[in-house]
Amino acid sequence: MGNPAILLKDLDISYGSTKVVRDVNLSVAEGESFALVGESGSGKSTVLKAIAGLAPDWTGQISVLGQPRGHGPDSGFAKTCQMVFQDPYGSLHPRKVVDAVLREPLKVHGLGNRDARIAEVLNAVGLDQRFRFRFPHQLSGGQRQRVAIARALMLEPKVMLLDEPTSALDVSVQAEILNLLKRLRAEQGLTYLMVTHNLPVVSFMCDRMAVMNKGEIVEIADAKQLHSGDFSHDYTRELYAASGAEAV
């Protein structure tokens, strides 16, 4: 095997003088789907932001596909690694139509063949071409999340950082987006690092998960362990019990 897709070593992350993430060590293999779970405020988004260059104040080591990452935004990095946020309302520019949203990364990176690429990506995320000239407010929540995923795919990244990509959606729409993410990963050989608070979503989407509590990873487990509830750390067992392990 070559390099891991994502390697985090002794990672501490701060906002100003407050350290919010400590001593994170993690290795995500190429093609793997890996979850970060834990309650809100535990530092999950902060880890993704540091990898994406949006939380520059960190120490330790971050590499993606064998390339060490610097502390600021890095346009070369954007081509290998992209992030999708929870809130499809907030993450799209309200006055830009879908076409402009998707065209922008191509312009920034000087890539050609733009119309064809946009059409192809819309197709991949299951959005009809008629949505191409709509504004975000003219789309449903699920359609907006498809646009956000399409935008992340424009540069054909190998690694996707997904921050609660379906938390704001209804269960039926969530099912559509989860199926879409699963299919894209298989088709394009993507690696996912996905933040979620929903353990059943991990069970459906992921191979492994890291459980975070108060800025630290307390356990790394196989997603299969969700079938038995057999976890080694008390906090994980608590989280499992609170997630109502019994189904309807």
């Binding site: 969530q174 099912a175 199926n179 059943p200 069970s203 459906f204």
Partner: peptide, 14 residues
Amino acid sequence: AVPQMKETREVLPV
């Protein structure tokens, strides 16, 4: 459409 804790389905019905 709700994912289950002991999920075994490859695709969720929509």
